[in-house]
């Protein structure tokens, strides 16, 4: 048996303008097979990834936002969102597609300090 590590995926990009958000989600889903202690944090424009009611039909792009709702099925259920990032964008937890824990910057900093690895997207 390998050692279980605490892995944090740090998401800081808006969902559709670049491929970062979608790639991060793919990596999280694949990585979940390795039974590590996984957390996801959404900071800066990364909070936009979780916005409800994304409808990409008219743009011809893929709407991958429903996939965040499947994370729980992969035992990925530690989702954290920075309060300051939400507030700057006029958003609240009710605007998001999945239940999350909203943390202050200080609380998120403390959480990050406990991780073995932080992956940046």
């Amino acid at each position: 048996m390998g050692v279980t590590k605490k892995l944090l995926y740090l998401n800081r990009k808006a969902p559709h303008g670049t491929i970062y958000a979608q790639e991060a989600l793919e990596v999280v889903l694949i990585g979940s097979a390795f039974e590590q202690d996984i957390s996801l944090a959404f900071v800066d424009d990364g909070v936009y990834q979780l916005k409800k009611q994304q409808d990409t039909k008219a743009t011809g792009m893929k709407n991958f936002s429903p996939t965040y709702r499947a994370l729980d099925d992969y035992d990925v259920n530690k989702l954290y969102v920075e309060q300051e990032s939400l507030a700057a964008r006029g958003l609240s937890a009710e605007d998001l597609i999945v239940p999350v824990q909203v943390l202050s910057s200080a609380e998120l900093a403390a959480l990050m300090a406990t991780q073995d690895v932080v992956f940046s997207f």
């Binding site: 808006a14 969902p15 559709h16 936009y48 916005k51 409800k52 009611q53 994304q54 409808d55 990409t56 039909k57 008219a58 743009t59 792009m61 709407n63 936002s65 605007d95």
Partner: peptide, 24 residues
């Protein structure tokens, strides 16, 4: 551009008054 608003989960009601909506 409205299709880009919709893709990001935003609606016309959330747009600042005076900003004009356009489609492709």
């Amino acid at each position: 551009l409205v299709p880009d608003l919709q893709a990001r989960g935003m609606s016309l009601e959330q747009v600042i008054a005076g900003v004009q909506a356009v489609d492709y």
